[in-house]
Design a binder for these strands. Structure first.
Lengths: 235, 235
DNA sequence: ACATGTATTATTGTATACAATCAAACATGT
DNA sequence: ACATGTTTGATTGTATACAATAATACATGT
């Protein structure tokens, strides 16, 4: 066993606890439960057809994931995310994305680099055609590839963790589609820096890329910008 | 309730589960349990005089904290930390410490700044006297104050999390080496940058401070801090 | 001796019973 | 009306009983 996966994923998908955990996480992230809504053990248990034990264990994990807050002898409440939290997350991510870009420069494989190039190329095409759906998908994938290329499970896990929180506010905080072209241009610059083995530049560009994404988001209003689309644009 | 504490601490110190959690965490971090050692629910329960239920719940949390790894239907095993993990953690921390320094520059209160100044001053004294114990304590506190001054519970939690892992390998690195004076000098520079409201410089210095700490640690032989098996498997 | 199938045992996973705690409704005295 | 004490019900916290699973030892046939 490598000690690389220091922070563990919840691997136990098929135990009742695992199922409860994943289901609750999904429901919280999707917004099924309101902010500050109280989750009762028996109610959740009955809904999923299990006893309190696996529900409680899932609660303990969700608490550490930050999705709920447990007040001793009182109850479990869905946590909210403030605008400051969102800003903090983006700023933290900006640093870590920068680090990921640096490490990617050092560790990227030929296959990964080619996927990045193809990603940028395809994104340019879809951007011109106005295919927002595909564009969002490619955007996500670009970052995923970079995380993988960083060669650090540790960092990868951190970034995925933060990404999860951002997903929660995607309804409140959806970036506008017109960031697409600019975002893709930034991807291309990051990719080029990685390709040319310029780690300093890659880190700086990836860092700025995230800050731009955040500022664009703020500019478009943290509150009202709503959209049907499941995907965010322009990270 | 502020949504600021997105990632929760384990606040429930007085429930049996909380006690088990804190005790186990302490024992793992202190090295009482070997790497890959199996933790059995009943054994732990009997040792602490509680039933399996609170032990199991504590296990679930420790799993997410990354201190143990739970294999379904099999057991719970203390996770190890590889040399690469340590490096990754330090590099990630370097970025986040930098960010903390930047935000501290923006949000620090007069009281916090004064504690920093006093800290540096005291550390200089103890350094000259060779009081390693106090020096280590002041070092920890310096960073704690900076985290608090950052005004971001989010970042604070992240850094504490990482700090915890580092504790498992650090132990005597600061004490043994003559890094004390140099480290304190760097603290002073960071403090001055914060005081002068030079956020860019503060970030840069705090960033470099962490990298220096890591390189010093490596120079003094990280090898004793982790197990042979991990070294062979890892790089 | 070896492979394979079958108890045996230890351990985890889950359900449930009971205790402790909290909050709201109610009652009481002023 | 108000404050305070008390009862009641709901909910969480913990212990324990039982089921499922995995590893080991054992037995059996070849």
């Amino acid at each position: 066993m490598s000690a690389n996966d220091l922070k563990q994923e919840v691997t136990d998908k098929y135990s009742l606890r695992g199922r409860v955990f994943n289901r609750l996480r999904e429901d919280i992230l999707s917004g099924k439960y309101e902010e500050n809504e109280e989750l009762r053990e028996v109610a959740i248990g009955e809904e999923l057809g299990v006893s309190r034990t696996p529900v409680r264990e899932a609660f303990r994990q969700l608490e550490l994931e930050g999705l709920i807050r447990i007040i001793p002898n009182k109850g479990a409440y869905v946590t909210g995310i403030s605008e400051k939290d969102v800003k903090d997350i983006y700023m933290i991510r900006s640093r870590l994305e920068g680090l990921a870009a640096r490490w990617a420069t050092e560790h990227i494989t030929l296959e990964q680099l080619e996927e990045m190039e193809e990603n940028v190329y395809l994104a340019k095409f879809h951007s011109e055609k106005g295919h927002l759906e595909q564009l969002a998908e490619l955007d996500n994938r670009f970052h995923e590839v970079m995380y993988e290329a960083s060669g650090s499970k540790m960092l990868e896990h951190q970034l995925r963790d933060f990404h999860q929180y951002v997903l929660r506010v995607r309804k409140k905080t959806l970036a506008s589609a017109n960031r697409g072209p600019q975002s893709n241009l930034e991807h291309e610059q990051i990719m080029m820096a990685i390709k040319e083995k310029n780690a300093d530049l890659a880190e700086q560009l990836a860092h700025q890329h995230m800050i731009n994404a955040y500022e664009n988001m703020v500019k478009n209003g943290l509150h009202e910008a709503y959209s049907e689309s499941e995907k965010r644009i322009g990270e």
